[in-house]
Structures are given as C-alpha cells and as structure tokens.
Amino acid sequence: MIKVRDVHKRFGVNAVLDGVTLDVQDGETLALLGPSGTGKSVLLKTIIGLIRPDQGDIDVDGQHVTSLDRDALARLRRRIGYVFQNGALFDSDNVFENIRLGLTDPAEFADGDFARQRVAECLSLVNLQAAVAEKMPAELSGGMRKRVGIARAIAGRPKYVLYDEPTSGLDPVNSDIIDGLIRRLNDELGVTGIMVTHDVRGAFRTAHRIALLTGGRVVAEGTPDEFRSSSNPEVRAFLERDFDLAPLETGTSA
C-alpha cells in the first residue's frame, strides 16, 4: 500500500505540491487527473524517490521513502516500475537491452537464457513482436516506444507500476491498446498502478479510483461512478471541459 501524507514540494517560488494526501490500496489502479502543471508527475517522482519532498511523508509497504538510505531506496525501487512520459528508453541500447535492464534481480539479469525468455514474454504482454527486440529506440514509433517503456517497467515483476502520461501524444487506437494493457496488467498480474493522465476517457475505463489534483492538492477522490455524479465544482469543471466541445475562441472577428 502507498500512503502519501501532506507532501509539499516547491521549485523556487512555485509551490507545485501543497499538502498532497493520498492512499493507494494494493491491487487497485488509481488515475491521477488534473490540469497541466499541477504537480502530477512530480508526485509520481516523489513516490519513487527521484524527487525529495520539502515536507511530508511517503510510505510504501511500511517503508518511509524520504528517510531511506541509498541502498534501501534502490531495493525499494526494484519493486516499483516507472513508465516515463516519453518512454525514456536508453537510446544507445537496443530494445532487448532496454528491457533486460528492467530485470532488477541480479541473478536474472546475469542469466542470458532467462533474460531472452523474459524479454520475449514482456514484449508479448505489450503486444509487440519478438523481432522488435533487435530494433533501436530511434526506429520505433511513439506508441511502440511507450509499450517498450511499459515492458521495461514490468520486466522485474514489480508490485507497483507508476505510469506518467502513458497515452499522451498517441492516436485513439494506440491509446486504447495502452489502456487495455494497463487493465490487463492489473487483472492478470495484480499490479497496483498509479496513472497520471489528462485522458479522462482512458482514466474512466482503466482505473478503479480517480483522484483530481488541482492547485497542488487532491481536491476530489472516488470511483469513476462517484466522479461522474460528483457535484464538486472543480470535478465538474474538469470533466465538462473535457467532454464539451465548445467552439474555440480564435481571437479574430469577422
């Protein structure tokens, strides 16, 4: 279980997180919605210890991320997969080596046969052909890069996977593939997920619970049904902006 308690983070004069409190139960997928620049990605990075909060506590399975030493943090990270917004694939290594680096157990990493088998499994899980393993990241499309990023994140069989904008920049077909994949990972492998996204449709289809982060705080939390029927004005404003196709103001007059 992940418990985020009163987390604050400031960059210069800009308070990005201003007292975030959030729980993620084992086995669930939580979608974190919110406008751009509200600190959703920063929150994910504080959970895995890539960014240190100024104040507050993050507890992952009883371990306090902010007070872990270097080695303990590395061990904890091996139980958390992180899917980066743009894939963050190592561009000097091919897909095979990228996914192999996700094998966080040293013995599994060193075992060439096991690595080949596991990389093939992970590619299959993300609906990519085995031949993709030989390609370099530069040869992949945006959707394939995202899927390889997910394959790398799950290669070490993590308990948690943190998805940072897994469908941003993708066409609807590829977005659906990624959404389906996140759901499958949860259903079939029991992976607990936190998904940062702007894609309201994907969040409603994929997540068990949704949280809305605005102004550096979680202002609403609930199941997709509770969210749909919420009277919270910030939830309404966010959802209606997404679903209503109001005419754009172009700034010119006829």
């Binding site: 890539l50 061990r75 904890l76 980066f84 694939l89 561009d91 000097s92 680096l101 996700g102 966080t104």
Partner: peptide, 21 residues
C-alpha cells in the same frame, strides 16, 4: 552532450527508477 541528453530525456531518471546506479 551524451549525459546531458540522457538527463533531459529522463534516461538517467529511468536508470535510477530501476534501482540501478
């Protein structure tokens, strides 16, 4: 340039997120 590009494209963060140094 190589390390700088890895930093700004989050490849170094990715390495750390995998518990690697």
């Amino acid at each position: 340039a190589e390390l700088g590009t890895m930093r700004v494209t989050e490849q170094i963060d990715a390495l750390e997120s995998l518990g690697r140094s």
